[in-house]
Simulated assay, not measured.
Amino acid sequence: MEEDLNKLIEFHGHYCPGLIIGYKVAKYVLKNFKRSQDEELVAIVYNNSCSVDAIQFILGCTFGKGNLIFKDYGKHVYIFYSRENKKGIRISLKEEISKEMNTVRNSMLNTTGEGIDIDAVKKWKEEYSDKLLNLPEEELFNVRDVDIPEPKRSKIYPSIQCEECGEYFMEIRGRIIDGKIVCMECFERLLEN
């Protein structure tokens, strides 16, 4: 295995198909979508699976820098936007790969009465990860250019103190309830009571 993959597995904690998908996506982007400065590449990910750890680790797109955007659509789609080049690409899994993963995963999860065979699942994950790792990109992904508006850069807002819990929070996330300015956490808790 390549050194960066070994480091990625160590960072993530295990070797699995999701991680390999993200790894292959990140390697494709490094090879085909040039960038020169940190934060100029923006990743828009449509899932919160293991794959996103690879994108963060290999490409340096993170929530903290504001160049990782999560859209909870639950599918293996990854959009990358270069602020320098004003270009975007969309990478998604080929239909055959999605179907294959789904079939095996569903058959393992729909066991009859005896529960899930953890060893069988572990073996499948390792074998399928190896298969994905060795597949050529063109057999794994659909890639196309996309024309999207430039994602907004992260912005720093003033903090204010919650009048309920006393913790400081980002001003634009404040809510008013019972005449008090509160953080979202306290707002949700007070709404439930």
Rank of each mutant, 00 (worst) to 15 (best):
N110C: 12
R83W: 00
E114I: 14
M101F: 13
T103N: 09
I118T: 11
F80E: 09
A26V: 07
K24Q: 07
D72R: 09
Y128K: 15
I58S: 06
I79S: 04
A54W: 08
S107I: 11
S129W: 06
K94I: 06
Y128N: 06
T103G: 03
M108H: 15
G74W: 11
I79N: 08
F63T: 03
E114Q: 05
N48R: 14
E114S: 14
R105M: 05
Y46D: 13
E126A: 12
A43E: 06
V29R: 09
E96K: 14
H76V: 00
I116Q: 10
E40M: 13
A26R: 00
N47I: 07
N106V: 09
Y81M: 08
D53V: 02
N48E: 14
E39P: 01
K99W: 03
D117I: 03
Y73L: 11
I58K: 01
I69A: 03
A120G: 12
I21L: 11
S82Q: 01
F57T: 02
K65Y: 02
K34A: 04
K86F: 10
Y28Q: 00
I116G: 13
V52A: 05
R90N: 11
L59F: 04
Y128I: 07
C50L: 01
N85E: 15
A54S: 06
S36M: 00
K65I: 00
E114V: 09
I116N: 12
A43F: 04
I116V: 15
Q56C: 09
K86I: 08
D117Q: 07
A43G: 08
E126T: 14
G88S: 10
A54N: 10
G74S: 11
V29E: 08
Y128T: 15
W124Q: 08
Y46G: 02
Q56G: 04
V104P: 00
G74L: 10
K27G: 03
R90V: 01
S107K: 15
N110V: 00
N106Q: 13
G60V: 06
M101N: 04
F63I: 08
V45W: 02
N67C: 05
N67Q: 10
I91C: 10
N48S: 12
V52T: 13
K87S: 02
M101T: 09
N48K: 07
T111G: 15
T62Q: 00
D117K: 13
L41Y: 09
F57R: 02
C61L: 03
D130Q: 08
I89T: 10
T103I: 14
I118W: 08
H76G: 05
K123I: 09
L109C: 03
G66A: 10
N110K: 11
V121L: 15
G74R: 11
F33E: 10
K31P: 00
G88A: 13
A43T: 01
K86S: 09
G22Q: 02
I79A: 02
Q56H: 01
I116A: 11
N110R: 15
E127D: 15
H76S: 08
G115I: 12
F70T: 11
I79K: 13
E40Y: 04
F80T: 05
K131H: 02
Y23I: 05
L68P: 07
K75I: 12
D72K: 12
A26F: 05
E84T: 10
K86W: 00
A26P: 06
Y73V: 07
V77F: 00
G113T: 14
G88Q: 00
Y23F: 15
L41T: 08
L30N: 12
I91Q: 01
E100Q: 12
L109W: 07
K131Y: 15
